[in-house]
């Protein structure tokens, strides 16, 4: 943030510092930062204004779109969450204060969905990132047709959630699904993946892992290739084997990237929605008959659009937002600690 702010401020200050005394023709050749044409003070003022305002104008589309489609709904949702709003009667909004939040705190379904989100988040993110590092490490060796491998890694990410989940639903089908068929070979009784408490969480996690491992692997790979080779050389001179090089050179150098992927994956896990919804099939927003894979996202959808209680759904949305803020703070503290430790 700070660095980008400085970058933004720079052209403006340099324009302030250099009032114009050069012919306008030089402008095109010398580019930005060149003093404005002299003579007319109107032109110079226009030029100065241009220097100050243009950067903001250039970044404004993002902020306008963000404001219209994210910030306004965000604030509106906060307003909704303090009211009783029903989907069938949107115009009648009665103030209820913090009732919706109190309602959530006393609802088993809310705590359940929080737990489910946490569990699925952990069992999908941890193996996913560990596998991604491993795969990136392998891809970093000289391989024949390395581009092909890399593209293959990305294909799950390029598949739509709906298509991927439908295939997984068939694989995990209780009666005649391929996974139960394979389990049968090693003598394990068929598992009712969708209705079992842990089986369903596991199944949903595998869809997430399948989709995102390749993506993270490519990010790690890009970071690995930026590690200077002399570090490895000197490590090798000191007698470090491949595993030691990986542990003591690669991993420490990847630390910022790992933190980045952890943050992104955590946000993704908190908002997990499409996979469990489609995995659940008909009335999938319940997340199974005992809500065994109803994530926070699904619970919000179920309350808002199926039950029609938009006030409560808004309260869930804000709770999710607060949870993300807490995670962000924890992340910040951890990063600081790590940096100090270094």
């Amino acid at each position: 943030m700070t660095s980008s702010k400085q970058a933004l401020a720079q052209p403006a200050t340099s324009a302030d510092a250099a009032p114009g005394n050069q012919p306008g023709a030089a402008r095109g050749a010398q580019g930005r930062g060149t003093p404005p044409p002299g003579g007319s003070s109107w032109r110079s003022r226009l030029y100065r204004w241009d220097m100050k305002a243009s950067p903001y104008a250039f970044i404004s589309p993002f902020f306008i779109v963000f404001g219209a489609f994210s910030l306004v709904p965000l604030l509106y949702t906060a307003w909704y969450s303090l009211h009783n709003v029903q989907l069938a009667d949107l115009d009648k909004q009665t103030w209820v204060g913090l009732d919706n939040y109190q309602n959530l705190l006393s609802s088993d379904f809310f705590w359940n969905s929080l737990w489910v989100t946490f569990v699925i988040g952990v069992i999908s993110t941890v193996p996913q990132l560990m596998m991604a590092i491993g795969i990136a490490h392998l891809l970093n060796y000289k391989l024949r047709g390395s581009t092909v491998w890399r593209v293959v890694m990305l294909t799950p990410y390029a598949t739509s959630v709906a298509a991927a989940t439908l295939v997984f639903v068939l694989l995990y089908s209780w009666d005649g699904g391929m996974i139960n068929w394979l389990l049968d070979f090693i003598g394990i009784d068929p598992v009712n993946w969708r209705e079992s408490d842990w089986g369903s969480k596991f199944a949903v996690s595998t869809i997430v892992i399948w989709r995102w491992t390749g993506y993270n692997a490519l990010i790690y790979l890009a970071a690995m290739q930026a590690i200077p080779s002399d570090l490895y050389e000197s490590a090798a001179l000191d007698g470090a084997g491949r595993w030691q090089q990986f542990r003591h050179v690669t991993i420490p150098m990847l630390r910022p990237t790992i933190l980045f992927t952890v943050v992104v994956s955590t946000i993704g896990a908190t908002q997990l929605f499409g996979e469990p919804l489609l995995f659940g099939g008909v009335s999938g927003s319940k997340g199974g008959s005992a809500h065994q894979f109803q994530t926070l996202g699904l619970y919000m959808y179920d309350q808002g659009w199926i039950v029609g209680n938009l006030g409560k759904a808004s309260a869930i949305a804000w709770s999710m937002f607060l949870i993300l803020l807490i995670i962000a703070v924890i992340n910040l503290v951890v990063t600081r600690r790590l940096r100090k430790a270094q």
Partner: peptide
């Protein structure tokens, strides 16, 4: 074990194109 930075740049571009296509 090393590959050139040009490669990694191509990789980044590839990633970006794939991401866009997905969108």
């Amino acid at each position: 074990m090393r590959t050139s930075t040009r490669r990694s740049r191509r990789l980044v571009a590839l990633t970006a194109v794939a991401a866009l296509a997905t969108g």
